[in-house]
């Protein structure tokens, strides 16, 4: 009886510590959930929740009814107050000039923001693609956005094929789009 009790408690204590050690190694001795500390870069898409973006853009113009539904689309959730978004702004505007000719569509969705600062931002960085304001965060929640910026890449069949969290550089952006084009 006593023996069983001490064996059980020894195993419990051991298991507890092994669990703590493994989890601490996973977070690298920092506070945070295992595996969640790296929030930047390409992440797996595990749920296809693509909905077309409709409504008006920030200038009151109706967004194209996704005229050619078989375009490849890059949806970017951003805000004018978010520092990483400022960091990547020029990458986006310059890359669009290149990819536009290859029938890649960009849509920028500004979140938790107001129209004036969005317009100012768009003009400053010369965004040529459609920018809309997601007032109640409906699209953001639908796409499962947590942090800004977050990008979703949609292929011609209307599937989300890639998701990118954090500021992107030209190279990764080009690679991702090229990869999707290749698969088509």
């Amino acid at each position: 009886m006593k023996k069983i009790l001490s064996i059980v408690s020894a195993i419990t204590i051991l298991a507890f510590f092994i669990l703590l050690i493994i989890s601490t190694i996973n977070t690298g001795g920092k506070q945070g959930r295992p595996g969640l500390n790296e929030v930047s870069g390409e992440v797996a898409v595990n749920y296809n929740n693509y909905v077309p973006i409709r409504g008006k853009d920030i200038y009151g113009k109706e967004l194209p009814e996704s005229s050619n539904d078989n375009d490849i689309i890059m949806i970017d959730f951003w805000a004018s107050w978010c520092p990483p978004c400022i960091q990547e702004a020029s990458v986006l505007s310059s890359s669009y000039e290149y990819w536009q000719s290859k029938n890649i569509r960009y849509i920028g969705i500004a979140l938790w923001d107001n129209e004036t600062s969005v317009k100012k931002f768009v003009e400053k960085y010369d965004f040529k693609y459609d920018i809309t304001l997601d007032k109640d965060g409906k699209y953001a929640i639908n796409y499962g956005v947590k942090a800004l910026p977050e990008k979703f890449f949609i292929n011609k069949d209307g599937e989300i094929v890639k998701k990118y969290i954090g500021p992107i550089n030209r190279e990764s952006l080009d690679n991702i789009i090229a990869e999707i084009l290749e698969k088509e």
């Binding site: 953001a140 929640i141 947590k146």
Partner: peptide, 10 residues
Amino acid sequence: ASISNDMKKM
């Protein structure tokens, strides 16, 4: 937080 308020609306 903004996202929480939006989620509540949702």
